[in-house]
């Protein structure tokens, strides 16, 4: 597992001027290549999604347009007989799950990572190993082993929100890598020594000095975690919980209402995409250009 660490770790500094200072001939060739790639991949990625979006707007007769399916998202009541709850409740639960998972993962990971960088360096290899481990233990394997543990959790609460316990584990590698990238660019030790010499306590060092310098990384970690939770199906389904993806699956299996299915799927995708795009702008730090 530790062997996974070098993935993408060649990085030290972004090559900001990559395209800026090359000879005109190479830039022309490069641009031709880029536009070709963007067009081909853009089509490949967009076509299925557009097809789905188009289908969600299908009217009663083939080839007509209608917003009916979209207007049903909020009001779709599910089918109690086959255990499908109202759609809106699944959406709520999924959003709440994303929120809880994000909170827990930040509270769990950020202080621990900083603490290990500052005081317990000898643990860092083990720590990295543990954080990346979920990448190689398939979620479905985890489900099999989680059975007994979730039995106990269910004695306390039956809410689907309890899924966050394991979602934190699933998101661990992604959050870790985002945070590690942010911390890597900081000289944490010097920052801490400077703050300590000015009289700050360790808690102050972490909360007031280091965390403000890694907002971008925390934001990235939150984005990846949210996207993961919004799209999670396997564990929720197999542990017999309900979330958005499980509900969509159930609708597709048990009712013929394809319209609302595609409308919700499209909306969820668009929502996640908008979230990531907006936050990528909010969190950006201006790169300094050198002359």
């Amino acid at each position: 597992m530790a062997a996974l660490a070098p993935v993408g770790e060649v990085v030290r500094e972004p090559a900001a001027r990559r395209a800026a200072g090359v000879s005109a001939r190479r830039r022309r060739r490069l641009n031709a290549f880029r536009y070709l790639v963007f067009t081909v991949f853009g089509l490949f990625f967009a076509l299925p999604l557009l097809a789905m979006a188009r289908f969600s707007l299908e009217g009663a007769k083939l080839g007509t347009w209608s917003l009916t399916a979209w207007s049903q998202i909020a009001s779709y009541q599910g089918t109690q007989a086959v255990g499908i709850p109202p759609l809106i409740s699944s959406i709520e639960i999924t959003l709440e799950l994303a929120l809880i998972t994000c909170t827990v993962i930040v509270l769990l990971l950020v202080p621990t990572m900083i603490w290990i960088r500052l005081r317990v360096r000898w643990l860092s290899r083990t720590f990295e190993f543990l954080c990346l481990l979920p990448l190689t233990i398939p979620a479905i394997v985890l489900v099999v082993g989680l059975g007994p543990i979730y039995n106990r959790i269910q004695r306390i609460s039956l809410s689907s929100l309890m899924l966050f316990w394991v979602y934190v584990i699933l998101a661990l590698p992604y959050a870790y890598r985002a945070l590690a990238a942010g911390l890597g660019g900081l000289d944490v030790t010097t920052l801490a020594e400077a703050a300590r010499s000015l009289g700050a306590r360790w808690l102050t060092v972490i909360v007031r000095v280091i965390v403000p310098n890694m907002w971008q990384a925390i934001l990235n970690a939150l984005l990846l975690t949210s996207a993961l939770v919004l799209g999670e199906f396997t564990i929720a389904y197999l542990l017999l919980y309900n979330n958005l993806q499980v509900e969509l699956y159930s609708i597709s299996r048990n009712t013929p209402n394809a319209g609302v299915l595609f409308a919700t799927s499209t909306a969820a995708l668009a929502f996640a995409f908008a979230l990531l795009l907006i936050l990528s702008y909010v969190g950006r730090r201006r790169r300094r250009s050198r002359g």
């Binding site: 990846l224 996207a227 799209g231 999670e232 993806q245 699956y249 995708l269 996640a272």
Partner: peptide, 12 residues
């Protein structure tokens, strides 16, 4: 888009 599609694939 990569962030969404890498994680979000699944059922949708």
């Amino acid at each position: 888009a990569s962030g969404v599609l890498a994680q979000f694939g699944g059922v949708t």
